[in-house]
């Protein structure tokens, strides 16, 4: 061991070189450990931030969906509570950026011409939009006329909802 060590000392006194190297190595060890721990910590912090962003995005999307659904609900109520809704409510935005919770909701309605010449039977497309944070969710329902009797228009929405 000694032999090997002293063989490397050619230009500077070996005892001086060894002493400094050992000190430097010790510092390097400490520094490396510290940097490693810092890097691990920062990485974890960064990962947590990403996770948080991701979770927030998911949560916001989910809440936006509830807002969009709420927008459609409000549209259904408008139709339900006004027997003359086809006359009294025109196509277009029924609600725009209506505040709800920490976000907003909007509802756009358009009449789809089914070409049967009877506008009272035309399908109606409701598009509900919910916005929360950076997330926007759109949900749409088409109400399709089933039959007409006594001047009342019967319609069924996609799914099980229907109206008369």
């Amino acid at each position: 061991m000694e032999t090997t060590r002293f063989r490397a000392c050619r230009t500077v006194p070996c005892h001086s070189l060894g002493k400094h190297r050992r000190r430097a190595v010790a510092y390097v060890y400490f520094l490396s450990t510290t940097i490693l721990v810092s890097v691990i910590g920062l990485s974890a912090l960064m990962y947590a931030r990403i996770q948080r962003r991701s979770a927030q995005g998911g949560d916001q999307a989910m809440i936006a969906r509830f807002y969009a659904q709420s927008a459609l609900e409000l549209g259904f109520a408008q139709i339900s509570l006004d027997p003359n809704w086809r006359t009294n409510l025109s196509s277009g935005a029924w609600f725009t950026d209506q505040p709800i919770g920490d976000g907003t909701l909007s509802l756009d309605v358009s009449i789809l011409n089914d070409g049967d010449g009877n506008p009272d039977n035309d399908p109606v497309l409701l598009v509900g939009t919910g916005v929360h944070g950076l997330s926007t969710h759109k949900m749409e329902v088409t109400l399709t006329a089933l039959s007409v009797k006594g001047g009342l228009v019967a319609a069924i929405a996609s799914g099980k909802r229907n109206l008369n």
Binding site: V37, G41, A44, L45, Y47, A48, G58
Partner: peptide, 23 residues
């Protein structure tokens, strides 16, 4: 340096806990 580094680790753990809680 170590305290700072460990704090970083701790903060990340705490953040993760918060994220889990929120989710």
């Amino acid at each position: 340096a170590l305290v700072a580094a460990l704090n970083t680790v701790g903060a990340s753990k705490a953040s993760q806990f918060k994220v889990d809680n929120m989710r």
